[in-house]
Nucleic acid binder design. Structure first.
Length: 150
DNA sequence: GCCAACGTTGGC
DNA sequence: GCCAACGTTGGC
């Protein structure tokens, strides 16, 4: 899952332990969120300058209607969504830890093993599926998590 | 239902 | 700041 670190990054998630992941307004990304199961492992990617995968979270609560879509004050308000027919979902993530060495987008692009990754093939997709093989490769490239983190 | 125009996102 | 990719909108 991608995020802008200035807005809501891994550090924010770490501070609250369990945080809501909301504001996703893209159908493909939403479908990927809905496919997430309890305790699924989630790689957290920071977009912006030197974009990279920075850490690991897990699904603390599976997808539910994103409250922001009903809130006319919110940037994420969607006039076409109703509580009876919600359009968008949020889910809760629990921070698991930071990668010892973050894995940059440049690294992924330069490595042919990642050619088929959804997040490379569809660069603007904010929630992309990662298969087990790619997940393991990334955890290896990242040298695992920082000491003291599960 | 198609497609051109337009807006947004995000990497560089 | 530019541009490519892609989603959305609206006219037909």
């Amino acid at each position: 899952m991608k995020t802008e670190p200035e807005e809501y990054g891994l550090h924010d998630l770490k501070a609250v332990k369990v945080g809501r992941w909301d504001g996703v307004r893209n159908y493909k990304a939403r479908n990927n969120m809905q496919a997430c199961l309890q305790d699924d492992q989630i790689l957290i990617y920071h977009s912006g300058k030197n974009p990279k995968i920075v850490g690991l979270a897990k699904v603390a609560r599976t997808a539910y209607p994103d409250p922001a879509q009903f809130d006319s004050e919110s940037d994420y308000f969607d006039a076409k969504a109703t509580p009876e027919k919600p359009r968008w979902v949020a889910l809760d993530l629990e921070c698991v830890g930071e990668l010892k060495s973050p894995v940059s987008l440049a690294t992924l692009k330069a490595d042919t093993r990642f050619q088929e990754m959804e997040m490379l093939r569809q660069t603007r997709l904010s929630v992309a599926e990662v298969d087990q093989n790619h997940f393991d490769l990334i955890m290896n490239l990242g040298s695992g998590l920082l000491e003291g983190e599960a």
